[in-house]
């Protein structure tokens, strides 16, 4: 069931047509998906303090209703090692169109996956997963299932990827936690069924997966017009 806060996030974003990253992450966190600890602020001092608290390296991203694809517009700075780096990043990001602050969070490691959803005309809500990151539309290594997902669906989605060996520990690398990945997909499927009437498509990309678990590093929720 959607909580009041979740409904509030969706209602506040309706006019814009999509949910800004901080709101999207909060919503996903409330739905039981792991999200990184983050701080969203227009104050450089607050962000510097936060980065100090969680420890470097960190990532800084622009929050702007005008910037839908952050990477394409230079709105993401990764691997910031210290205060100087964060100050520089803040300066660069604060110049972006529609600037409403900077989001700072910890650097995550792991295999980059995409988890997504859309409302298909013929089949209703469907869920996609696959190899993520910025090359997602180059590799096109994804599987799709109609929501809601069962455990069997999730298993066959993972097995159906060309890259499934990467997840299961390729050439000595540690396998990603399939249990945590499954848990995330099932929680996501539950959320998708709850907001079926309100969204058009969702990209969780990348989702960083390692042996410790899976964390949503970036999220975009497109709402129905």
């Amino acid at each position: 069931m959607l909580t009041q806060e979740m409904k509030g996030i969706l209602a506040a974003s309706k006019k814009r047509g999509w949910v800004l990253e901080p709101g999207a992450k909060r919503l996903l966190g409330l739905a039981g998906l792991a999200i990184p600890e983050f701080k969203w602020s227009t104050s450089l001092d607050e962000l510097l303090n936060f980065a100090q608290e969680i420890g470097y390296p960190v990532v800084a991203k622009v929050v702007s209703p005008k910037v839908l694809h952050k990477t394409d517009s230079g709105g993401v700075v990764v691997g910031i090692e210290d205060e100087t780096g964060l100050k520089q990043a803040f300066g660069k990001l604060s110049a972006q169109e529609g600037f409403e602050g900077v989001l700072v969070e910890e650097m995550l490691a792991g295999v980059e996956l995409i988890i997504g959803a859309k409302v298909d005309y013929q089949f209703g809500p469907v869920i996609l997963m696959g190899l993520g990151g910025t090359g997602v539309e180059i590799y096109r290594d994804t599987t799709l299932r109609m929501a809601p997902l069962t455990r069997n669906d999730v298993e066959s989605m993972i097995r159906g990827l060309k890259a499934h060996e990467l997840l299961e520990g390729y050439r000595g690398s540690e396998p990603v936690s399939l249990e945590e990945l499954t848990r995330m997909l099932l929680a996501f499927s539950g959320l998708v069924m709850e907001i079926e009437e309100q969204f058009e498509s969702i990209d969780l990309n990348p989702v960083m997966c390692s042996s410790d678990g899976c964390v949503v590093a970036d999220a975009r929720i497109m709402l129905k017009g």
Binding site: D120, Q122, G130, T142
Partner: peptide, 17 residues
Amino acid sequence: SSHTASLAGDYEVFSQV
């Protein structure tokens, strides 16, 4: 506007579902 919408075309969804 999203990777998912681009990757989950009508036929891909049809076939996999």
